[in-house]
């Protein structure tokens, strides 16, 4: 008998004894609840578009995420230029993507592209990782990204500064919507990594005092891109 069968056998044996419902936890008639009903219990999010943007912005402040809203590509590259100057970037790590392709060269800095498989040590030396993402989530101020949408696993966590760029249409109200989107986008061919990023890396392991930039980026910037009318 394989180990798998052995363990599954013990499980079945254990469950056979008596499957009784925990005293105060009755299962609902429709079995396991889905993300849809979860929405009714999680923190409320306004349902008008401006309200959603405001909720997102408020969460960013609370999380110490830098948040900017720009209109059109020229304004986006202007913002990146500003960041580059104020922080003195010398090396950028990024990935292929229509928006990024049209903007990165204008910054006039050397950049590594994930598609070229740069060495880990090189990505580590970059001053910033600039990526796209799958969605933003207003309810929690989070970025949803995957190994496919954001140039792999390391770009968004290895450099000391992560800049995520999202179109305004990518801003979702809440977590259940994010999981619906994942299902719709990837079906059953999910990327090997999906991650929800909520604020810059932090720790409270020393006397429960908040310190940013424990192992991941100390600075997290989210730029929300509006289409010009």
């Amino acid at each position: 008998m394989s180990r798998r069968d052995e363990i599954l056998g013990r499980i079945r044996e254990g469950l056979r004894l008596r499957v009784h419902e925990p005293k105060r936890a009755a299962t609902s008639s429709d079995g396991v609840r889905t993300g849809l009903t979860t929405r009714e219990w999680l923190p409320a999010v306004p349902n008008d578009p401006e309200g959603i943007v405001e909720t997102f912005a408020r969460n960013c402040v609370e999380l110490r995420t830098q948040y900017y809203r720009v209109t059109g590509l020229p304004e986006l590259s202007g913002k990146l230029f500003e960041l580059k100057d104020s922080e003195g970037w010398k090396l950028i790590a990024s990935h292929r993507d229509p928006i990024l392709d049209s903007i990165l060269p204008s910054l006039g800095l050397p950049f590594l592209l994930a598609e070229d498989r740069p060495a880990t040590a090189d990505v580590e030396r970059a001053d910033v990782g600039i990526t796209r993402c799958d969605a933003l989530i207003a309810q929690t101020g989070s970025i949803l990204l995957t190994a496919r949408s954001a140039g792999g696993r390391a770009l968004s966590v290895l450099p000391p500064h992560h800049v995520a760029i999202a179109r305004e249409s990518q801003l979702l109200p809440d977590l259940p919507a994010a999981f619906e989107l994942l299902n719709k986008t990837y079906g059953d061919a999910y990327p090997s990594l999906i991650t929800l990023i909520t604020g810059p890396s932090r720790t409270g392991d020393i006397e429960r005092i908040l310190v940013l930039g424990a192992h991941g980026p100390r600075t997290l910037t989210i730029i929300l891109l509006r289409d010009p009318r």
């Binding site: 923190p43 969460n59 990935h95 994930a114 598609e115 498989r117 309810q139 929690t140 101020g141 989070s142 190994a147 496919r148 140039g151 792999g152 696993r153 390391a154 966590v157 999910y190 990327p191 090997s192 990594l193 999906i194 991650t195 929800l196 990023i197 909520t198 604020g199 810059p200 890396s201 932090r202 409270g204 991941g216």
Partner: peptide, 28 residues
């Protein structure tokens, strides 16, 4: 757990590097 709405990173990992991905472990 920590008094946060969400912790900073919530990662879902479903395999080693998949075809077409740029990095990630070879074995999981």
């Amino acid at each position: 757990g920590t008094g946060q709405q969400l912790t900073c990173y919530n990662s879902m990992i479903g395999g080693p590097r998949q075809p077409g991905e740029t990095d990630g472990p070879e074995e999981f």
